[in-house]
Design a protein around this nucleic acid. Sequence first.
RNA 1: GCGGACGUGGCGAAACCGGUAGACGCAACAGACUUAAAAUCUGUCGCCCUUUGGGCGUGCGGGUUCAAGUCCCGCCGUCCGCACCA
Length: 808
Amino acid sequence: MGHVRNYTMGDVLARYKAMTGHAVLHPMGWDSFGMPAENAAMEKKVHPGAWTRSNIEAMKKQLKRLGLAIDWSRELSTCEPEYYGHEQALFLDFYKAGLVYRKESEVNWDPVDMTVLANEQVIDGRGWRSGALVERKKLNQWFLKITDFAEELLEGLESLDKWPDKVRLMQENWIGKSKGLKLTFNLTGTHDGIDVFTTRPDTLYGASFVAIAADHPLAQSLAENAPALQDFIAECKRGGTTAAELETAEKMGFNTNLTVEHPLDPSWHLPVYVANFVLMDYGTGAVFGCPAHDQRDLDFARKYKLPVRRVVAEGDVTDSEFDGDVAYTGPGRIVNSDWMDGMGVDEAKAAIIAKAEQEGWGEGQTQYRLRDWGVSRQRYWGTPIPIIHCEFCGVLPVPRNELPVKLPEDVSFDIHGNPLDRHPTWKHVKCPNCQEPAVRETDTLDTFADSSWYFIRFASQPDDKPFDKEEAEAWLPVGQYIGGIEHAILHLLYARFWTRALQKVGKLDFAEPFAALFTQGMVTHETYQINRPPTEEEKRVFGWTDDAATESVTEWLSPEQIERHGDRVVEVGTGRAVKVGRIEKMSKSKKNVVDPDPMFDQYGADAVRWFMLSDSPPERDLEWSESGIEGTWRFVNRVWRLVDGLEAAEGEDKALDKSLHRAIAGIAADIEALHFNKAVAKVHGLVNDIEKAAPSASRAAAIRTLPLLVAPMLPHLAEEAWVALGNDGLIAGQPWPSHDPALLIDDEVTIAVQVMGKLRDTLTVAKGSSKDALEALALASEKVQRAMDGASPKKIIVVPDRLVNIVI
RNA sequence: GCGGACGUGGCGAAACCGGUAGACGCAACAGACUUAAAAUCUGUCGCCCUUUGGGCGUGCGGGUUCAAGUCCCGCCGUCCGCACCA
């Protein structure tokens, strides 16, 4: 249903835009590589390709029933070599341009299944199938240099004025530009130093330790002769790789017993720790800790009993000794900092950067939180990375005339690990340079690569290259992109990067792929659970004894498996009590899904479409309900009855004319703004007015116009109505009806009359009445006089055509 | 932990630049039609009271203003994202 909602919105817009004279390209494709297919292969013993293609067929059938005005001639599927072969060509273009490189990076490693796990396959620090404690392991992996574009991607956000502010802000934070100081702490008694990046150089006098990442070269070299440190580093590597896990893990440190000199006072020595909360990927992999003004540093300092020195005054508190467990990160005057005392935070930052640069122990630097895009996946169901590794010639691109590098079909998922790596023949090739035996790269590309350029392929799809520049540029950038908020950062940022990368290698001449973005809400439904005794099978598998087996198993139920008797909810058939759970996004795992097909059967596609557009604003979640779909079905029938019962009549109905012309203008404006729920409300309003009106020429005209107004939303009904009203051809080709602007203006308005801000009366007056006239009318009102209770007005506020407020 | 949002009747919501809170729909209730039911149609529908009137009301507590759902400050609650799900 989530897709149904998404595509219905796009379809309404596409149909409306066509009616208003625009050339519309409304294509459909399948982002069809990825883990679900491999999971299905493991669980159901089907080939990922067969599983994927049959899903696509089923979904396509469903979308066709929904009545989408889609140009199916441009359909594409990312798992077919006709698509991913071109992607491999683009990858090689990027490789040639220096936008691709290899480096070591950590993955979640399941030591039992001997396989790499995705973050979602790590549950509470354990592998989802094996239950083994997950470790972090380093592998050589491929990266795209998105950081080369960090500044551009940040600046580009400003031009995206048709994107939600929220998404732009999320991307801005993701890129995470920060200005600070990179400085070197000299290791006491040596000529070596530790480079540290800080955004708070103003707190340098509050430093009480230096911490380095477990992967930091210094930590690694110290560990060579220190088993305790080796153990500590191993400890740090336990657990997942996600930011949430790393940052919520308990702060741990290992004292190296080394010290560094404070750059502003070489006689002041700070201890050096290896710490689990310092990330090698960000900055220099080392930080200095100022506990009084950073929460993480404070937690760490309290745990290891390190000094906590206040260097920013909190209000008038300036004591050197810092109490409490909440760091102060707000503004204030610098204190206890020698020559910086009395400066503001920003002033101090600038001053110390200047001093560091002058004295040569540091320099001002801009850092980005954005990391390069790791595109390697140790999986089968993805685009093979077109690279060959030769023992003698090194890393070589696959020759262009050998593309596409196709996935082998004969693979098995019986044992773990990457099937491409295990395949007996696939990876063994001759080196294109020296002809000696060599091996293919067995990593495949992140599926985000597939979704980073599919919109270009929609616009232009020649056989011999990924796209034709002129043809693609004729359509692009995308005029309106509709997707879920879950894509706010990664997909949208990668696609923006990919487009820029194409621009850099000369394939395209624009930077931003999506001119306008809309993020729609999810379709949700209640969840249902029952407790039931275990089956014999479950007892056997889980080794439950008969005693233990009296404990019940909790199971999700689908909406068809429950029925209501008043307030009671029970399971169909068994009558067991059902626990009604939270309203959540429809998902197969919680079984709270509603299959569109039976709904099409029962109510028709138009009623389903209307439901998707009604009530909830499109950016918010929509709760599916049985009574809701019945309501929309009734409405579709009402429209049909109006058309079916049309009688020719004479005479003008001015009020209905106004209602019609307002609806024409209002519905158009709402669709343009993607306020589909408001457009639906306006259609309801018009239908109500038509039903109430007596027969007249105006009423007949309104009924004849109605199908055009609902055509983008209810295309099937509209076509039927069009024919029933005696018109030729398809309504889909008709222009949107025009409206008379004169009919949108009222000659009378109802204004509010308040006494002391409270509503006491309303008055209907001629539009544009003078302030004096409104004031006089308001004071003359009996209700107003009663409310004033003899008091005399002190002040009267008059907002023409709006209200009068009398202050006494 | 960091970042982002959201909170209005029984429910989904609307309310443009601060100017009549609750348009429109769902559910519910009453009535008409019917032998009956469904469908359809008509009406009621934020809460409270001393009911041609009045008081209260947009998560909670403050503030600004003639006037606050809307602006400001502080809370509370819920949801989403966090780089190998897509």
